[in-house]
Amino acid sequence: MHAWQPAVAGITEVLHARFTDHAYPRHTHETWDLMILDDGAVDFALDRRRHGTSDASRVVLLPPGVPHDGRTVNPGGFRKRVLYLTTDVLPERLAGPAVDGPLLGDALLRRRVHQLHAALEFDDDVLEAQSRLAFVRERLLVRLDAYRVRRPGRESDRLAERLRELLDARVRGGITLDEATGLLHAHPTHLIRSFSQAYGLPPHTYLTGRRIDQARRLLLAGERPADVAAAVGFYDQAHLSRHFTRHLGVPPARYARTARDRAR
């Protein structure tokens, strides 16, 4: 079992666990319980009605304040990943539809929840995690018949341009999704869609690319990777190394060494 509290507003806890013989007693949460099953089978009761699933493509959504339990149904147990979401993410008034249908067969939602978990593995990628949470929230609201997606229109190019200007001005310090939407008076997912439509990649990916470009120049100028990480806005040297290696196929220190070897 692995549990932690991420640096992302709206998520009180992330839980990754495998159970082979555990049974949760009947209980409630103050939060929404958003679960994906990675393998095995689970059986649970929600508001006195039993449900069961062994389908890893489904998403389980349990509302706050409603009694539920959970248990394994075979010797192999089950492996799950759970997000506990506050009522700022999903209002408590939507509990009724969730009680009526807690098992969501939605491949897009499942993929978005998986991507959010991957982003939450590292506390240094807050903008990405916030962006992915916004899209998870949007999909849940659509499934609960509480929201309709608005596609970017003619105004989207200017909105994307303004966000790009913000990102370019804050390469080192970064910006949160809440800050960006507040400054630009835009809905989070609409803002991200507008940027992605205009530039072909989401804002967090664009910002990382700008930081990598700056890091390359500083490394070639002889700066140490630890100093470069701080100078361009990465959380620490490990954060720089992870993204740098993914972009260029080599870690920062080796990249800098090739320049020194050539100079000799």
Results as ranks from 00 to 15, higher is better:
Val8His: 10
Val14Lys: 03
Arg18Ala: 08
Phe19Gln: 10
Ala23Asp: 01
Arg26Gly: 09
His27Cys: 02
Asp33Ile: 08
Asp38Gly: 02
Ala41Arg: 15
Ala45Ile: 01
Arg49Tyr: 07
Ser54Cys: 02
Ser54Asn: 09
Ser54Pro: 00
Ala56Ile: 09
Ser57Ile: 00
Leu62Gln: 07
Pro64Tyr: 13
Gly65Ala: 01
His68Cys: 02
Gly70Ala: 11
Arg71His: 05
Arg71Gln: 11
Thr72Pro: 00
Gly77Phe: 04
Leu83Gly: 03
Ala95Ser: 15
Val99Ile: 15
Val99Thr: 12
Asp100Phe: 00
Gly101His: 13
Gly101Trp: 00
Pro102Cys: 09
Ala107Gln: 11
Leu108Ile: 04
Leu116Glu: 01
Ala119Met: 05
Asp123Leu: 09
Asp124Trp: 14
Val126Phe: 00
Val126Gly: 01
Gln130Tyr: 04
Ser131Gly: 14
Leu133Phe: 09
Val136Gly: 05
Ala146Tyr: 08
Tyr147Lys: 10
Arg148Thr: 12
Arg158Ala: 15
Arg158Ser: 14
Leu163His: 12
Arg164Val: 06
Leu167Ile: 15
Asp168Gly: 04
Asp168Val: 05
Gly174Ala: 06
Asp178Phe: 10
Thr189Asp: 08
Leu191Ser: 10
Gln197Asp: 15
Tyr199Asp: 06
Tyr199Ile: 00
Pro202Cys: 06
His204Met: 02
Pro225Cys: 08
Ala230Thr: 10
Tyr235Leu: 02
Ala238Val: 03
Leu248Lys: 14
Gly249Lys: 07
Pro252Asn: 04
Tyr255Thr: 06
Arg257Cys: 08
Ala259Ile: 07
